[in-house]
Design a protein around this nucleic acid. Sequence first.
DNA 1: TTCGGCTAAATTGTATACGATATTCTGCAC
DNA 2: GTGCAGAATATCGTATACAATTTAGCCGAA
Lengths: 237, 237
Amino acid sequence: MKSTATALQIAEDSAETGAQQIRDAIRDAIVERRLSPGTKLSESDVGNLFNVSRTLARAALQALSYEGLVSVEKNRGAFVAYPSPEEARQIFAARRLVEPGILREAAAKITPSQIQHLKQLLLEEGRLMGERGQTARRAEIKASGDFHLTLAGISGNAIMQRFMDELVARSSLVIALYGQSTISSCGHSEHGDIVAAIERNDLDEACRLMLHHIAHIEADLDLREHKSVGLKEAFEL
Amino acid sequence: MKSTATALQIAEDSAETGAQQIRDAIRDAIVERRLSPGTKLSESDVGNLFNVSRTLARAALQALSYEGLVSVEKNRGAFVAYPSPEEARQIFAARRLVEPGILREAAAKITPSQIQHLKQLLLEEGRLMGERGQTARRAEIKASGDFHLTLAGISGNAIMQRFMDELVARSSLVIALYGQSTISSCGHSEHGDIVAAIERNDLDEACRLMLHHIAHIEADLDLREHKSVGLKEAFEL
DNA sequence: TTCGGCTAAATTGTATACGATATTCTGCAC
DNA sequence: GTGCAGAATATCGTATACAATTTAGCCGAA
């Protein structure tokens, strides 16, 4: 037995296996849209890129497929996920379903310092919206998602937090594919409104705003079948 | 390009890689409680058991760890998950959070034949409750979960369905660990009540019953810290 | 006897190797 | 020039091999 083992071993030794790092790196690249949907992720290429063997590359890609960020096709390889309009609808349906509940749990437990932290995020988000350049845009995308993720974190439910991780990441893919307005994270002010509602303990209003916010994002999508895949397919029907 | 590729490729070629089969087999064993929480799952042993190499065994165990059914500890190996009381609470909190929403979506889309299918499940469940023996008990456990899973399937949201898969499977682990009453799936009649409420289109009542049902399962748990781990740890504090 | 460290066995982490499947290219017939 | 058959290439699926870490057993000293 480990001599240092106490009753509550919270996070134990992190840093896990090297595959985790590769997974995180690729995930970041996908979420920040440096990798476009449909991009092929060959095991050899990934391995070479990170200077590891195909074994680790494969493990990382498998992990990402469990999160729905890459789709692996048997004997064909892994690709950055290309969510169908139907998948996109389901992702947002799931968010509408769970986010109000998460919000309620979070609001019930939130501490003043956590509210401060949320406001800090909002400030950062606003700052990024003003800046120019690719890197700022990428940071903005991530910050926009971080708001929802932080809320999930405050709720204290690790399972819901993991689920939200997945939903937010996949949402980023959907927006990259079907988003219309150039402004990626349209509803920055909406985040602020939600925090304000939480702060004055108006939960019903906060939930209403959250649903409105999600609907707002979804309204910016053009979910008609196959944006530009057709030509031939258009005549096959 | 695949000549047979149509606009909507629903399930594509299944049967995937062999690791999937092993994963499913082990998952079934865990959910049906043939494998107890904490049991060590060595890669070699798993590989030998299924007559495959460690590579596939490892892949299967990794997959199961993403579902929260096994926990892999670095350089130490994989074990059937041993959810802490806190984790157990979070699992059921998550179910309380999502199941009413799933129920509402399912009820909105349900067809008469699907209602019939649900009733069929209930009948089967009832039949198993009457029988004796280990195998019947295991089938009963699975049937109890299948009710919730079928509901998620009817909702038509694949993402929520996968999430419920995970939650139900982990619930089985929690009940195995902390359940008190010998009757595993206590609330069989509650399932019937829910279906009845759906049938007469009383959604509010159906949700109420669902929440009651989940609370009922949770009430049967003894979630005090560390049932029988202590002796030494008890004195270290 | 008990505690400590040391060695040996077992197990995991990672890389490489080989066979199977899919994709691409070439060449020939029409 | 077009279309199809077959080989060559690339990529994935799985097994095996080796290195690193942990676990256990053992022996000696206090």
